[in-house]
Design a protein around this nucleic acid. Structure first.
Length: 568
RNA sequence: CGGGAUGUAGCGCAGUCUGGUAGCGCACUUGAAUGGGGUUCAAGGGGCCGGAAGUUCGAAUCUUCUCAUCCCGACCA
């Protein structure tokens, strides 16, 4: 296409509202414009990239045996009431009434609608398994939309739902999706990892997130350097502590620790290492206080705690809440004689003769021992993994790194089919609920994540498979008929070979064209200028590494076709 | 919803403290020159100073209220 025929409003300066790199560059390169908070228009270039991502997604979903459908965005509230999520989903579900005063909502996700569709149309195990997907705009009234396309309220999502008759079946469906997702993100040219994840509010029993690796990612992920283990920090398991040889238990003693509340201060005062102190953190679990014991140098992982307690919300208690429930000021809490529920992290089972608060202002115990001085009902893995931890699978070294969640797959089980009474007749004549899985990809987020991962100071560096154009031709001889004609010919030659090519035919200075080409991130740039007039040569430059070659115009088409084929 | 900040031309900003009727750069229009890393000169067009109320002879500027946007926390593709 011709540059002059496309709406590509590039910006020289960074918009004040954008300070995340993908947002900034998407704005500057003229891919998106904001309409209102968390809601964006896609301009021609943005839509082209989106379409390329969608095409890859479609091809892989179809290849994995899924069928494409398109479900309604406006949904009756009744259906959400039936699943129980009308209440549970909260204000993120945008609700409104139509002219007949019927309660409606905008679909933030489609478990209800798809389950309704399947329960009304599939009644036998003979129709199973089935996997239905769509690519569609979702709306979630996020508390705080931010980072441009990374967390919009309106965004484009591919969501798929599988229905199986058996456990083996759903496992196979899940694995097929996992494999398809690997192919999708690999084909998009992204560096990513699939990690084990918490199942969150969607529920279900098993889940993986697909993370695009980028320093600016919102999530921390844990990767084993030796084996294939990878997990979200929320989920990452801590290896069971190595049990050292048991030493003799020393006598418990209460010591005065005036004004020493923080772990560092207490340990310094007592002349002990932080790993020899048990700290006591109080959390409010659905409004009920719970104390968590863990080693002085460890941190609580709230999601693990939430899961252990079966609570819907856990939050660190304020100093006041803490005092109200225990009668002890924070800093002096300890397991011995504490009146509220106490749970403990696994790591403390390996500790001996440790220090802890004495539940009395300005006092701590030393030489406390689990079992002798106190007992704990629930001991579990409750802490955050650290880089010092070992892989729970192979004992290898762990690495903590940042990622952007672009895909999430869940094995749902029968959670939705049960509440929505979606059943089929099995071969044994029994009526059974469908066993479901659901699988999402944030298509618009993939575009943003690709940029977070691939950019430099000059602009975007698109992986070729998702670049709006594969090749950009710069005509630098705007006033020179021969050069302009050669650029035109090259443009038509590439088009004839099926290359997505953009010809910069603007009456602009060379500098502007170079700057814009870099900003747009088109992988291959061809410059047709006075070097053509001098020696019949054109210049080819790769955006990725800046590698430049010159070659005769006559060879350009074949060479470019080869280069593009190599990168797809 | 808590904490912080900002709203002045399409974009980036100054002017606000100390009230006197709106300015700079880029972009845009016209003309000329220039043509391999955001070129130069000249002449133009464009603003209800987010909105409302108040104080004042006079408000972008002071006061109050509102709306919007962005950033930091709990949620998620």
């Amino acid at each position: 296409m011709l540059f002059t025929k496309l709406l590509i409003p590039t910006l020289k300066e960074n918009p004040a509202e954008a300070d995340v790199v993908s947002h900034r560059l998407l704005m500057r390169a003229g891919f998106i414009r904001k309409l209102t908070s968390g809601v964006y228009s896609y301009l021609p270039l943005g839509l082209m990239t989106l379409r390329k991502i969608e095409k890859i997604v479609r091809e892989e979903m179809n290849a994995a045996g899924a069928q494409e459908v398109l479900l309604p965005m406006v949904q009756p509230a009744d259906l959400w009431a039936e699943s129980g999520r009308l209440q549970k989903y909260g204000p993120e579900l945008l609700r409104f009434k139509d002219r007949h005063d019927r309660e409606s909502c905008l679909g933030p996700t489609h478990e209800e609608v798809i389950t309704d569709l399947v329960r009304n149309n599939i009644h036998s195990y003979r129709g199973l398994p089935v996997n239905l997907y769509q690519i569609q705009t979702k709306f979630r009234d996020e508390i705080r939309p931010r980072f441009g396309l990374m967390r919009g309220r309106e965004f484009i999502m591919k969501d798929a739902y599988s229905f199986d008759a058996t456990e083996e079946g759903v496992d196979a469906s899940y694995e097929a999706m996992k494999a398809a997702y690997h192919r999708i993100f690999a084909r998009c040219g992204l560096r990513f990892r699939a990690v084990e994840a918490d199942t969150g509010t969607i529920g279900g029993s098993f889940s993986h997130e697909f993370m695009v690796l980028a320093e600016t990612g919102e999530d921390t992920i844990v990767i084993c350097k030796q084996c294939a283990y990878a997990a979200n920090l929320e989920k990452a398991a801590c290896a069971a502590p190595a049990l050292a040889e048991r030493a003799a238990e020393k006598a418990l003693a209460k010591v005065e620790t005036p004004g020493k509340r923080k772990v560092e201060a207490v340990c310094e005062f007592l002349q002990i290492a932080q790993r020899d102190l048990v700290k006591t953190m109080v959390y409010m679990a659905d409004g009920r206080p719970v104390a968590v014991l863990l080693r002085g140098d460890h941190e609580v992982q709230p999601v693990k705690l939430k899961n252990l307690l079966g609570a819907s919300e856990v939050e660190l208690a304020s100093d006041q809440e803490c005092f109200d429930s225990t009668g002890v000021p924070t800093g002096y809490l300890g397991p011995i004689g504490l009146k509220i529920q106490v749970v403990a992290d696994l790591a403390i089972t390996a500790m001996q003769n440790f220090a802890s608060g004495a539940n009395e202002k300005n006092f701590h115990y030393v030489n406390a021992n689990l079992g002798r001085d106190f007992t704990i009902e629930k001991i579990a893995d409750l802490r955050m993994v650290t880089a010092a931890d070992r892989c729970p699978l192979c004992g290898g070294e762990l690495e903590l790194t940042r990622g952007i969640e672009v895909g999430h797959i869940f094995k749902l089980g029968t959670a939705y089919s049960e509440v929505l009474n979606a059943r089929f007749l099995d071969s044994d004549g029994q009526e059974k609920p469908f066993i479901m899985g659901c699988y999402g990809i944030g298509v618009s987020r993939v575009m943003a994540a690709a940029i977070e991962q691939n950019h430099d100071k000059d602009g975007i560096i698109f992986p070729l498979p998702i670049a709006p154009f594969q090749v950009i031709i710069l005509n630098l001889g705007f006033t020179d008929g021969d050069i302009t004609q050669a650029a035109q010919a090259l443009y038509q030659g590439l088009q004839a070979k099926g290359i997505d090519v953009l010809l910069d035919d603007r009456d602009e200075r060379p500098g502007s064209k170079f700057k814009d080409a870099d900003l747009l991130g088109i992988p291959i740039r061809v410059t047709v200028g006075k070097r053509l007039a001098d020696g019949g040569m054109v210049e080819i430059r790769q955006r990725q590494d800046g590698q430049t070659t010159e070659l005769p115009l006559a060879e350009a088409v074949d060479t470019l076709v080869q280069m593009v084929a190599q990168c797809m």
